[in-house]
Design a binder for these strands. Structure first.
Length: 499
RNA sequence: GUCCCCGUCGUCCAGCGGUUAGGACACCGCCCUUUCACGGCGGUAACACGGGUUCGAAUCCCGUCGGGGACGCCA
C-alpha cells in the first residue's frame, strides 16, 4: 500500500493556487519549495490554477498570482499563458476530463452517486456535533439500488459523486519527511468528488491532474495530510502510481495558529507595496523550516563571514544548498520583526543607484506620485505644502490620538468594535471608488453609524489626522493591502496601549 | 468530540548518545557618534514533564501534557 517508486521518472512538481483573492504568502512559500525541488533535480515546475469553486472565484486574482510569483522571482515552465504539453492548466477548462474519470470510478464501483441536499447534510452534521460525534457523512446513499437511483434522477434531484471508502481497513502512505502515516478508514469520509454543479472537488481534480500531468512529487502544506488517504485511495481506484508526498510545515501567526490575514499581513501585494524587496522575502521564506544548512565554524572563519550571514542567502544559493531532508517539522512563526531586519540588510547592501531604483519602482514610482499629486492638486497653495498633505501616503507608522479618531458620541469600546467591521467590509470590496464607498455606507447603515462618524474614523486611522485629501480617493491610491494593514495595526496598537 | 502531525532561548534555526547546549532576530548594557540608524563588544534567555534503554541522554523507546491541523457540494 505504501507508495513505491520503481521506475524513476523525470521530476515534475507543481503549485496549484486557487484564485480566490489576493496572492497569499503561503503560495510563495510552497512555490519556492517546489521551485527549489524541481530546479535541484533538473525537473519541471508547473503552475496550475485550481478554480473549481465558482462561489469563491475572484476575477482579478489569477493575474495577481502570476504577477506576485514573478515578483518574488519564481518562474515556471508550464502553466496558463505559458502553455505546455499537458494543458489546459486551468481546472475550469478541464471539466470534461473530470467527468470522464468520475464515470470510470462509478463504473468500477469505487464511487457512487449521492442525492442528499446540502441542507440535509448540514442537519446531519449538526446532530452529530451535538451528540459529540465526529461530523461525517453517514453513508445513507452508499448502497442505493439502480432502481432507487433512477427514481431520484427521475425526480430531478441533483446528485454528487462520492468516493466509496472501503470499510474495515486502513490506508498507509509514506510522507517523505515523516515516514509512514496510517489512517483507519473509519476516520476517512466518503468525500464528494463531483459537485452537483458539475465541477470536481479539489480531491478528484488534483489526483486526475497530477497523474495526467506526470507529477512525481507533491510538495504541499501540512494541512493536506488528513486528506491524503483519500487521494491515495483515488490513485488506487484508477490503478495509477501515486506521487511522493512531502508535507511542509504550516507558516504560523505569532500565536502559533495557521497564518491568517486576521493576525498577519498575508497578501504578497502588501509586501510588494510597502517596500519589501523580493529577494529579502524569498530569503526569509527560505529560512522558514530550516532547509538551509548553517555555515560551519570553519566556513565562517575561512570566508570571513559575519555570523549573521548564515541567515542571508540568494535564490541561487538555495538551489545549491537547500536540503529537503533537513526541514524541521515544527510550524515556523512568520516573524515580521525578523523579516524587516532581513529586508534592511538587503537595502543596506544595495548600491546607491540600486536603492534609488527600488524607491522609484515602488513608493516613488511615477504612477504612484501622479496618483498622489492628483489628490492634492487643487488643495495646495505652494508646492512646498505637498509633503504636509500627503505624508501619510509615504509613511509606515501612522497612529491617531484618541482625540482625533474617537467620534464625539461614541465610546472607545464601540469604536474599537466597529473597526473590525470596517475591515471585513473593505476586505470583500473591489478596490475602486464606488465599491469602497458603497461597502462602507452599507456597513454604516447596518450598524447605525452615520456617514460622518464612519468616514472620519477611517480617515483618522489611515491619515492620522482629521484633515486630509478625499478619503476614498486616498484609499484607492494607498492600495487595499496597505489600507487593511494600517487598520489592523491601529487595532493592535490600541490593544497594547489599553493593556 | 474523533483522527493526524508536531514539541531546543520570546521568535527562526544548529545539535542527530559524551558540547561550558551554538548562531541569528528581538531585548538589555557598553563603545563609536552633533542626533538617529549602521557597526563593534558584552549580557539575559531554551532542551515541556514522567518513566524507561544505556556507563552516559536534548538526541533512542513509551506515556502524560501542551501546541497545531483536518473533520465542507472550500482549496
Amino acid at each position: 500500500m505504501t507508495a513505491e517508486n520503481p521506475t524513476p521518472r523525470p521530476t515534475r512538481v507543481r503549485i496549484a493556487p486557487s484564485p480566490t483573492g489576493d496572492p497569499h504568502v503561503g503560495t510563495a512559500y510552497i512555490g519556492l519549495l517546489n521551485y527549489l525541488f524541481a530546479t535541484q533535480r533538473g525537473g519541471e515546475f508547473i503552475l496550475r490554477i485550481e478554480d473549481t469553486d465558482r462561489t469563491r472565484f475572484h476575477a482579478g486574482s489569477e493575474q495577481m498570482i502570476f504577477d506576485a510569483l514573478k515578483w518574488v522571482g519564481l518562474t515556471w515552465t508550464e502553466g496558463p499563458e505559458v502553455g505546455g504539453p499537458h494543458g489546459p492548466y486551468r481546472q475550469s477548462e478541464r471539466t470534461e476530463i473530470y467527468r470522464k474519470y468520475a464515470q470510470i470510478l462509478l463504473d468500477n464501483g469505487t464511487a457512487y452517486k449521492s442525492f442528499e441536499s446540502e441542507a440535509e447534510l448540514e442537519e446531519m452534521r449538526r446532530q452529530q456535533t451535538a451528540a459529540k460525534q465526529p461530523p461525517r457523512y453517514n453513508g445513507a446513499h452508499r448502497h442505493l439500488t439502480p432502481e432507487q437511483i433512477s427514481a431520484y434522477e427521475a425526480e430531478g434531484r441533483p446528485a454528487v459523486i462520492r468516493l466509496k471508502v472501503p470499510e474495515n481497513t486502513s490506508t498507509t502512505f509514506r510522507d517523505e519527511l515523516r515516514g509512514d502515516i496510517t489512517f483507519d478508514h473509519n476516520n476517512v469520509d466518503d468525500q464528494v468528488l463531483m459537485k452537483s454543479d458539475g465541477f470536481p472537488t479539489y480531491h478528484l481534480a488534483n489526483v486526475v491532474d497530477d497523474h495526467l500531468m506526470g507529477i512525481t512529487d507533491v510538495i504541499r502544506a501540512e494541512e493536506w495530510i488528513s486528506s491524503t488517504p483519500k487521494h491515495v485511495l483515488l490513485y488506487k481506484a484508477f490503478g495509477w502510481q501515486a506521487p511522493n508526498f512531502w508535507h511542509m510545515p504550516l507558516l504560523r501567526n505569532i500565536d502559533k495558529s495557521k497564518i491568517s490575514k486576521r493576525k498577519n499581513p498575508v497578501s504578497l501585494n502588501y509586501y510588494r507595496e510597502s517596500g519589501y524587496l523580493p529577494e529579502a522575502l524569498l530569503n526569509f521564506l527560505g529560512l522558514m523550516g530550516g532547509g538551509m544548512a548553517q555555515p560551519t565554524e570553519q566556513e565562517i572563519v575561512s570566508k570571513g563571514l559575519n555570523t549573521k550571514e548564515g541567515d542571508i542567502f540568494s535564490l541561487a544559493e538555495m538551489i545549491e544548498k537547500f536540503d529537503f531532508k533537513r526541514i524541521s517539522l515544527g510550524g515556523p512563526v512568520f516573524d515580521l520583526v525578523k523579516l524587516r531586519w532581513l529586508n534592511g540588510e538587503y537595502i543596506r547592501k544595495q548600491s546607491p543607484e540600486a536603492f534609488y531604483a527600488s524607491l522609484r519602482r515602488t513608493i516613488l514610482s511615477d504612477d504612484y506620485l501622479q496618483a498622489v499629486a492628483s489628490l492634492v492638486h487643487t488643495r495646495l497653495e505652494t508646492l512646498g505644502q505637498f509633503g504636509d498633505m500627503t505624508s501619510f501616503l509615504f509613511s509606515d507608522n501612522v497612529l491617531p490620538t484618541d482625540a482625533v479618531f474617537l467620534p464625539k458620541k461614541r465610546t472607545l469600546e464601540e469604536t474599537l468594535a466597529f473597526v473590525p467591521e470596517q475591515i471585513t467590509a473593505l476586505e470583500s470590496a473591489d478596490w475602486d471608488l464606488t465599491s469602497i464607498e458603497s461597502a462602507l455606507k452599507k456597513l454604516g447603515e447596518e450598524k447605525q453609524w452615520s456617514v460622518k462618524e464612519n468616514f472620519m474614523l477611517l480617515r483618522a486611522i489611515i491619515t492620522g489626522s482629521a484633515t486630509s485629501p478625499p478619503l476614498v480617493e486616498s484609499l484607492v491610491v494607498f492600495g487595499k493591502a496597505r489600507t487593511l494593514d494600517r487598520m489592523r495595526r491601529f487595532l493592535e496598537a490600541q490593544k497594547k496601549i489599553r493593556r
